[in-house]
Design a protein around this nucleic acid. Structure first.
Lengths: 350, 350
DNA sequence: ATCGAGCATGTTTACGTAAACATGAGGGCC
DNA sequence: GGCCCTCATGTTTACGTAAACATGCTCGAT
């Protein structure tokens, strides 16, 4: 009977209670324990009670490794991401976790600290060995598009924020539409044109916001001012704001996210350019704090919860139909939230 | 040979490549494949090459369920939390994920949407069945302290933000010390007393900040104004700010977090109370945006990354020594970041 | 040349679970 | 009243991996 031998360093065997132990105590077979454990019918009440009592007494907990081995699945979804620090990512992940939990799936986080090609590849490799049935990739950068990075075959994948829609299932906020709404709102207020603070160049979301901004202006026949380059941080927005405050004919700015908009607000405040009287500002994201900026920020609301929901839905569909990724892009609509950082240009503006 | 039978709906067997498949193709035993897979010595180069080639050809990926079953561990840490939305939680989780990854552990997220006793219990129960070797509980509320909630035995646990230090390993920011620094800073500037906007009553972190605020005032022999109750949101801070703006002798406020401080700033701005000339404001957390509030916020910096690091360190120690939770509280120091929202009171203040 | 040491590789077994099949007892139907 | 069917429960087996043990071959020392 002796297993593991007493010579094993640490000797941490036998600590875990198995079905066999419960079965022995309850005086039944382990199969009966299994039936009770899984709520199968066909176990007489008295027997069930005995088994349950034995389970309680021994503190039995099913071994999910054995279960997973048996069933061939883990009931777990992996989430690969670069950072949880951005509002968008953390809220998307939260929604993913919540919806996955509702479906009986757990979430395994696979962080990539530095987004180099190598690290991404490494994460995918590791992920292949990870106990996950499917993967959701939340990826700012377009590393996925280079072709170098190859997702392990046979893994169900949904990607957030990428243009790899021709090869993978992609779920994303409708960045272009959101940006369009923001710019049109400013033009409709009577501004001659709209300046723009971009996100980092490598960001897909940022690129699409910038493209849409440019397109709306061109279509409206307005001049396209040179975009100022930011990196999502409030600090970069502040720097851009200092520059814009010096542009006398700048009356409206579209920042690619709310934090950079915050930086703009501070810069304009310091430079004595009143918002929205002298300059209008629109952000993107609608972070919870945006309503309490000074002044409250007009911004494009992103429905991160819905993005998360659709991601889970997407991978679960793949898992359940045993189908591969169905290429295509699923865009979640945005809405413009108008607060007090935008107004018609004061008087002389052209 | 037929396994699973063709009548099985979906028939999703055989899709996965096992060691046996690789072994057959390479013309060796599965044990040799195992040795190659795990980098064991004692496999001649030519054999190793054959095996590797077979692995590549078949796209072999080790089955982690079988591995976990064999080894008796999952290399996974579970994280139970209520919300990822707060800056603190998401940054702590990120740090946990990063450090865990560095140690070869993955993170499984177990979200609890509504923090009722029942849900918490349910999460712990589910967690018992989950494929985790240890658990980190990030818990605002003191549900853990009621005794009703019982963590499954045999699971390694570290708790963040609780006073259950007598029963569990607790890692937390030194809330009291941070609050003390904030209040003393304001008193040192010459303010007669300091008002306070609290966090939600159920929050342990909030309670401790409030207690420390009161204690410093009492020890300094200053009057203790009635605290205003907030709920961490900028909105609640805004409401408190409107009330405080009406208190003529209020010259200094300590908000229990940065978002409420943001609400205060907006309220004071709207009411024409200039910060810091008329009123000084100190926050808590040092969220990245705090430096770009108008004015830039003086606040207490929390080192979330360090909290996450110590959590991982704590559970890994438990796992590796096969020891239970070592009761005790591990406090991470804070630092006061002085920006422009605090100043000496203008002239007449007492 | 002989024997054993050492090494590459194969065989057996166990990890915990649950489907599939087997068994046996009791009850209804003719 | 005998037969079969149903139902509760037991037995066998497989899931994929890797430790432990077994085998057989080569090479060096005597």
């Amino acid at each position: 009977m002796e297993r593991g031998g007493s010579g094993v360093p640490g000797g941490r065997r036998k600590q875990r209670v198995s079905m066999a132990d419960v079965a022995t105590l309850a005086g039944v077979s382990s199969q009966t324990v299994s039936r009770v454990s899984n709520g199968h019918p066909g176990v007489i009440a008295s027997t069930r009670e005995q088994v349950l009592a034995a389970m309680r007494e021994l503190g039995y907990r099913p071994n999910s490794a054995a279960r997973a081995l048996r069933y061939g699945q883990f009931n777990t979804i992996g989430v690969i991401l670069f950072s949880l620090s951005s509002t968008g990512n953390s809220r998307t992940v939260e929604a993913i976790a919540t919806h996955a939990a509702a479906e009986g799936y757990a979430i395994t986080l696979i962080p990539i600290d530095v987004p180099t090609q190598d690290n991404v590849l490494g994460a995918f490799t590791r992920m292949g060995e990870l106990a996950v049935d499917a993967v959701i990739v939340i990826m700012e950068m377009h590393l996925l598009d280079t072709g170098t990075v190859q997702l392990p075959p046979g893994v169900h994948v949904v990607v957030v924020d990428s243009d790899a829609g021709d090869r993978y299932s992609v779920v994303d906020t409708d960045q272009a539409d959101g940006a369009r709404k923001a710019v049109r709102h400013l033009l409709d207020l009577g501004h001659r044109t709209v300046w723009h603070v971009t996100g980092p160049e490598a960001s897909y979301a940022g690129q699409r916001r910038t493209q849409a901004w440019r397109k709306v202006l061109e279509e409206a026949g307005r001049p396209v001012p040179p975009p100022l380059h930011g990196d999502w941080s409030a600090e970069s927005g502040y720097a851009a704001g200092l520059a814009l405050a010096a542009e006398p004919d700048c009356t409206a700015v579209f920042a690619a996210n709310d934090q950079m908009a915050l930086g703009l607000l501070r810069a304009f405040h310091e430079r004595g350019r009143q918002v929205p009287r002298d300059i209008s500002v629109v952000g993107f994201d609608d972070i919870p704090d945006a309503a309490f900026f000074v002044p409250p920020l007009t911004t494009v609301h992103q429905d991160f919860a819905e993005v998360g929901r659709r991601c889970v839905q997407g991978v679960l569909r793949q898992i359940r139909t045993h189908g591969g990724p169905q290429p295509g892009t699923d865009l979640v609509p945005t809405s413009l939230v108008i607060r007090n950082s935008t107004a018609a240009p004061s008087s002389s503006s052209a």
